[in-house]
């Protein structure tokens, strides 16, 4: 479905020399530097998968997404999505995909979202009945009924994002490229958008590829991870497997401040006692805690994904 082979994108940026003489000299001989935003990346994604692109700022996630959608021409390598070469931007291809990037994409600033939805119906040449049905469905899922006839500039960030998502999905794309779909939204709105994306994936069978800084997005949405760092693909596989490899420990917690447990190696943090131990130590530690404190309110947690990724990017592989 999505086949990527040896994909690379190199930007040639001019080096600005200082001062007037430098500016004059650069008119004649421009010194440039190559920046390898994406270097030799290969992967395959199947229909209906949900995949997360993860990596630090400037790692090449968004550049990859832009090449997959057809916005950027690759410097080298082959991309095939749904059998199309994305950068040809064949209208038949564009009718089958969508890219959501930020909140100022499709909505016409001075007009209500309804007008954008109408424009998209014409632009994508959608059957009015199908369009109406999809729109009703999206409006209900996103709860944006009251926003439809307000000018877009009067909408809040979260409201605009939801309307952008509706506009981006009206033509029922088979592939969704989502760049930071929850950025800038409050926790409640983030959760709504997340469950909406999962819904679209399940109901329409759409393939979802997303980048995000919020690990909750990744944890909730994408069982498969592609970790990109400095333009290179560092990991491609199940999210849980990476977590187990990087952070094989478990976190044992006890509710409340319990000084009695200090000798067992638990420390107090945020009103609870915590110890991070290897998986095979969990059971014995739980036993010891109960010996000391039979009424303890116990919990065992995995290491949160953002901590896992922090370790990964610092180069701390698990034992």
């Amino acid at each position: 479905m999505i086949e990527v082979h040896g994909l690379s994108k190199t930007y040639r940026v001019p080096l600005k020399e200082e001062g007037l003489t430098g500016s004059l000299r650069s008119l004649f001989s421009r010194r440039t530097r190559d920046i390898h935003a994406v270097a030799d990346v290969s992967f395959t994604i199947h229909q209906g998968e949900r995949v997360g692109f993860l990596g630090p700022n400037g790692a090449g996630k968004t550049t990859t997404l832009k090449m997959l959608s057809g916005l950027l021409h690759p410097t080298a390598g082959q991309v095939s999505v749904l059998g199309f070469r994305p950068q040809d931007r064949n209208p038949d291809y564009l009718r089958r995909i969508t890219l959501v990037m930020g909140q100022k994409q499709q909505l016409m600033w001075d007009l209500p979202p309804q007008e954008t939805f109408e424009l998209n119906r014409a632009m994508y040449d959608l059957d009015r009945k199908d369009w109406r049905q999809t729109l009703d469905e999206l409006v209900a899922m996103l709860k944006i009924e009251e926003l439809l006839d307000k000018p877009s500039r009067n909408l809040s960030l979260g409201e605009r994002m939801k309307c952008e998502l509706a506009a981006a999905l009206l033509h029922r794309p088979q592939v969704l490229f989502l760049d930071e779909p929850t950025i800038g939204l409050d926790v409640e709105m983030q959760a709504q958008v997340r469950s909406f994306i999962a819904d679209v994936n399940e109901r329409f069978g759409a393939t979802v590829i997303l980048t995000s800084h919020y690990m909750q997005d990744i944890t909730a949405l994408t069982p498969r991870l592609l970790v990109i760092d400095q333009g290179r693909l560092r990991y491609d596989g199940p999210r849980d497997e990476l977590a187990h490899r990087i952070a094989p420990e478990r976190r044992v917690t006890v509710r409340g401040s319990q000084p009695a447990l200090l000798p067992l190696g638990l420390t107090e943090a945020h009103g609870r006692m915590v110890a991070t131990v290897p998986t095979d130590r969990v059971n014995s530690l739980l036993g010891e805690v109960l010996d000391h404190l039979p009424t303890a309110d116990l919990g065992v947690e995995e290491i949160p994904l953002d901590e896992v990724m922090g370790r990964y990017f610092r180069g701390e592989e698990g034992s």
Binding site: K66, G70, L71, R89, P91, L94, Q105, Q106, N120, M123
Partner: peptide, 16 residues
Amino acid sequence: GSLSPQLLRPLHPLSL
């Protein structure tokens, strides 16, 4: 970069 969303719709930005 506001050309980007227009490039990804099936109508040519100049036609629009």
